[in-house]
Design a protein around this nucleic acid. Structure first.
Lengths: 102, 102
DNA sequence: TAAAAACATCGAAATATTTAGATATTTAAA
DNA sequence: TTTAAATATCTAAATATTTCGATGTTTTTA
């Protein structure tokens, strides 16, 4: 006898795909994603900012877009923000794209 | 004795990823990709145009961006253009995204 | 409790994208 | 060979995005 623990597989609708694509369609935001993905744990907002020669408000805006596209998850810790990659959304987006090539 | 016929696996650089993301970050272009991917063979430019309530020049512009991002391959046949999905690029892009979630 | 740190929000300028109409180009059909 | 069909290019307007500086909010530290 088998028991399946079946976690839902996220399926993105086209509005989500559009938003995610738009979020990734900027050199800074793409670099941010790359940087954060290379971390084992998380990355702090101010760390991210230090890597780029952009105003703090600009960086805040870019990070917000990545969070709104659900590519990043932001967790508040005191006066800091910790970012992690949202694996589930990355995988769902990746699957959506892969299916286009069939 | 074994012979490997080893086809190169396409690796995208971040400029390409940015361009592809930008190309996919528009509702019309995303729909175009969806439509063409659902076809077994190819799709003609004028067929694509008929599905949308957009000027011909606008459609031409959208298709051009998808071709320039290499998501679509355009083949000229007489006075028509045939579009097919560029599987290799879709897969390479999909892989790039999947790797972000690791 | 005053100051500083981390981040968000607002307003405005600079820049980029989207769109349509007019026109040009190429190829097929009459 | 004139006309029509399919597509591309150019220009300009409308719209959206990016960026910064100024200022606001929240939390920590002195």
């Amino acid at each position: 006898m088998f028991f399946y623990i079946c976690s839902m597989i996220t399926e993105l609708n086209s509005k989500q795909v559009e938003k995610i694509s738009k979020a990734l369609g900027d050199p800074y935001r793409l670099q941010i994603m790359d940087m954060i993905s290379k971390r084992k744990d998380f990355m702090q907002c101010c760390e991210v900012s230090e890597c780029f020669n952009l105003a703090q408000s600009t960086m805040s805006h870019h990070l917000k877009q990545l969070v709104e596209a659900e590519l990043l998850v932001a967790e508040k810790e005191g006066r800091n923000l910790k970012f992690t990659i949202n694996r589930e959304i990355c995988e769902a987006y990746s699957r959506y794209i892969a299916r286009l090539g069939f």
